[in-house]
Amino acid sequence: MTTKNADIGLVGLAVMGQNLALNIADHGYTIAVYNRDSKKMVSFIEECKKNEPSHANVIGHADLASFV
Score class of each variant (00 low, 15 high):
1 M>I: 08
2 T>P: 00
3 T>G: 06
5 N>A: 15
6 A>R: 04
6 A>D: 01
7 D>P: 07
7 D>M: 07
8 I>L: 13
9 G>I: 11
10 L>F: 06
10 L>K: 04
11 V>Y: 00
13 L>K: 06
13 L>I: 09
15 V>T: 13
16 M>G: 03
16 M>N: 07
17 G>D: 02
18 Q>S: 11
18 Q>E: 14
18 Q>H: 01
19 N>H: 14
19 N>L: 13
19 N>D: 11
20 L>Y: 12
20 L>D: 01
20 L>E: 04
21 A>T: 08
21 A>K: 02
23 N>Y: 13
23 N>Q: 14
24 I>K: 08
24 I>E: 08
24 I>Y: 08
25 A>T: 10
25 A>I: 12
25 A>S: 15
25 A>P: 11
25 A>R: 13
26 D>W: 06
27 H>T: 11
28 G>M: 06
28 G>V: 03
29 Y>S: 11
29 Y>D: 04
30 T>K: 13
31 I>E: 03
32 A>I: 01
33 V>G: 08
33 V>H: 09
33 V>F: 11
35 N>K: 05
36 R>G: 01
36 R>A: 02
36 R>D: 05
37 D>G: 02
38 S>Q: 09
38 S>E: 09
40 K>G: 03
41 M>Y: 03
41 M>E: 12
41 M>Q: 12
43 S>H: 15
43 S>Y: 11
43 S>W: 08
44 F>G: 00
44 F>I: 02
45 I>L: 12
45 I>Y: 05
46 E>I: 02
46 E>W: 00
47 E>M: 10
48 C>I: 04
48 C>Q: 14
49 K>Q: 13
52 E>C: 09
52 E>A: 14
53 P>I: 06
54 S>C: 14
55 H>L: 01
55 H>G: 00
56 A>T: 10
56 A>D: 15
56 A>M: 06
57 N>Q: 15
58 V>Y: 02
58 V>T: 04
58 V>S: 05
59 I>F: 07
59 I>V: 12
59 I>D: 03
60 G>C: 13
62 A>P: 04
62 A>E: 14
62 A>Q: 13
63 D>E: 11
64 L>Y: 14
64 L>K: 09
64 L>F: 15
64 L>E: 14
64 L>V: 14
65 A>L: 12
65 A>G: 06
66 S>M: 00
66 S>A: 05
66 S>Q: 04
68 V>I: 13
68 V>C: 12
68 V>G: 15
68 V>E: 15
68 V>Q: 13
